Amino acid sequence: MMIKKKLFLVLITCFVIISCDNEDEAKTTNLVLNLSGLEELGSDFVYEGWIIVDGEPVSTGVFSSVIFPQSFQVEARQLASATKFVLSIEPRLDTDLAPAATKILVGDFIGNTASVNSNGIVANFSSVSGKYILATPTDEDNTNEASGVWFLDNSTGSVVAGLSLPTLSDGWKYEGWVVFNGTPISTGTFVSSTGFDDNAVTSPFKGIAGNGPNFPGEDYLRNAPTGLMFPTDLKGKTIVISVEPNPDNSPAPFTLKPLAHVVPANAEVHKTINMGAGPVTSLSGSVTR
C-alpha cells in the first residue's frame, strides 16, 4: 500500500512539473516596435520582424501599416534569449519560413532595447555623391538634348561614372527617377554605376539610335505617360536616386533616397552637373521587449 502511495505522489509531481513547463513555454510577452521612415509597400509585400535566438531567426509577426508604435505577442522565453532584431520585406503570400534577402533594419538587444538602423543591413549612404549630364544620345537627329539624363561625368574630357554609391546588400537595387510635376518616372534600375541599367534595351522612352552610353540614364523622347509630353525639358525637374526592394511591385520610389537634385534653370546640355544629398539616407527606430 505504501509503495502505491509513493508511486502516486511521484506521478502527481511529474504531472505538475510538466504542466508548469508547458505553461512557461506558452507564456507570451509584448514586443514593441517604434520605427520611423518606413513607407507602405505594394499590395504584394509586407514587413516581417524577426528575433535571433541561438543564431536562428524566429518570426515576431508581419504588418503592413507604418503607424507606430506597434505591439506583437512573442513567446516569452525566446524573446528573453534574443540577441538581435531584424526587419525584412516579405511576399504577402510567403511559403518560405526563413527571412527574405531584403532586410531593411537590424540592431542588437542591449538590455531590453534594440536600436535598429538601415545602415548596417542595406548600406551606409553617408558619403555618397552624384553627377549627371543632360543629353539625348538615343535621339537620331541629336535634338531635344535637355530631354535626357545620364549619370556620368565628362568634366575631365574622359567619360567616367557619375555616381559614387556603396554596394547594396542582397535584395536591393538602385533606381533613377525624374519627377515631372509631382509624377516620378523611372530612368531604370541598376546595381552598378558603371554599365547599362536594367532597361537599357527595353525602355519605352528612348529613341531609336541605340541604347545610349554604358551608364545608367534615360532619354525621354517618346511614349510619354498620360498627362505628360515627350520630348521635354528637364530643367527645373528633380532628379533622384532611390534604393528599391528587389523584387519591387510599387511604381513609386521607395523611402530611401540618398541623392537628389533640382536641375538648374540655366543648366547647359552635355555639361556635368553635381547632385546633392537626398531627403532620406537612413532609417532607424527602437524595439523594446
Rank of each mutant, 00 (worst) to 15 (best):
A209F: 04
P253C: 09
C20V: 15
D219A: 04
T60N: 08
I18S: 13
D96W: 08
S164G: 13
P204A: 09
P225G: 04
V179Y: 02
G55W: 10
C20K: 08
N142T: 13
S129H: 08
G55C: 07
M1D: 14
F45C: 01
I67V: 12
A26G: 08
G130L: 03
P69S: 13
V122L: 10
I12E: 15
C14E: 08
V106I: 15
A252C: 06
D141Y: 09
S81A: 12
F68Y: 09
K271Q: 13
V106K: 12
G120P: 09
S250I: 07
T189H: 08
T189I: 11
D198E: 10
N119S: 07
I104T: 02
V287N: 00
C14G: 11
T156A: 12
L41R: 00
N34D: 14
N144V: 05
N211D: 13
D141R: 14
S43Q: 14
N211Q: 14
L256C: 04
A209C: 10
I3E: 15
T232M: 01
F8N: 10
D24Q: 14
F63T: 02
E244S: 03
M1F: 10
A98G: 08
G157Q: 01
V66M: 03
I67Y: 07
T281G: 06
G42A: 03
Q73D: 15
V106W: 04
A26P: 01
F63I: 04
K4H: 10
D44P: 06
S193E: 12
V269T: 08
G285E: 00
I17C: 11
T102L: 09
P204L: 08
T288M: 06
D44Y: 12
G195D: 12
E25D: 09
L93Q: 15
I185M: 04
I110Q: 15
S250H: 13
H270K: 05
E25C: 06
G236T: 03
Y174P: 00
L168S: 05
R289A: 09
E56T: 15
S129Y: 12
A265F: 07
K5G: 12
V16M: 12
A98F: 14
S169M: 00
A80S: 15
L105P: 00
L134E: 02
V46L: 13
E145R: 11
F151E: 01
S242V: 09
V86I: 15
L283M: 05
G61Y: 05
E145C: 09
A277I: 14
V262K: 03
F180T: 01
V53S: 05
G49C: 06
K6G: 14
L35H: 03
G37E: 03
K235W: 01
P99E: 07
F8L: 13
Q70A: 00
